[in-house]
Simulated assay, not measured.
Amino acid sequence: MRSANLLNDFAFKYVFGEDCKEANDALKSLLTVFLERKVNRVVVKNSEMVKDYSKMKSPRLDLLVEFDDRTMVDLEMQLRQTKDNLPIRFSYYLARLHGSQQLEGKYYKQLKETIVLVFFNVNIIENDNICNTFRLKCDGDLPLVKDEKEDRMKLRTIEFE
């Protein structure tokens, strides 16, 4: 039996996106490690983002996961640089995912957390960190919200060689 390279996009989706206990356990372990939070239950959702109108881009997420508290996580495996600007692309994915929540008749504080977790083999940030987390901040590094629990949009990158 040949072993699969999980850095391959298709192998990544196959191993972590399969509808079986082993894949679900592996996915929960991966999310627990890289999101630094306990993951009790996850559900892999359809990864196609629905367009609002015909000229809008229709991104296909690598793996879209929903936690039991309805937190949405997009896991992306990005092995090479493309012509698209990757930080802007993943910010777009994050905004689309966050904005896709049904909020009619609800308060904005009821929005659930959304996270885009990206695994890269390219250096996009000039620092020595393996893991970087990006949040909305004001100029001067002031956070937009005072309580980290209110910070509902996160882009986290994991760089590897």
Rank of each mutant, 00 (worst) to 15 (best):
E48F: 01
R89H: 09
L94R: 12
E76F: 12
V42D: 00
F10Y: 07
N132D: 15
L94S: 05
D52C: 05
N85A: 15
V122W: 03
R89Y: 09
Q101D: 08
A26V: 04
I158M: 07
R41D: 06
M153Q: 13
Y92R: 14
K109C: 13
P87Q: 06
E104G: 07
L61Q: 02
V15L: 07
S58D: 00
T114W: 05
I115K: 05
K146C: 00
V42P: 00
Y107M: 12
T157Y: 11
V122F: 11
I125G: 01
M49H: 05
F90D: 05
T71H: 01
D68M: 04
L61E: 02
L30C: 06
G17C: 06
V118G: 09
V33S: 04
N123H: 08
L103T: 11
F160T: 15
T114Q: 06
L94M: 08
F67V: 09
A95D: 02
F120I: 04
Y108R: 15
G17F: 01
V116G: 13
Y108T: 11
G99E: 13
Y108E: 09
D9H: 00
S54N: 02
D151A: 15
S29T: 14
T32L: 06
L142H: 08
V42E: 00
L117A: 07
N85E: 15
V33R: 06
M72H: 09
K154W: 05
L64M: 03
F119G: 10
E150A: 13
I88Y: 13
D25G: 06
L61R: 04
E148W: 08
V42H: 02
C138Q: 10
K106A: 10
V39S: 03
R37P: 04
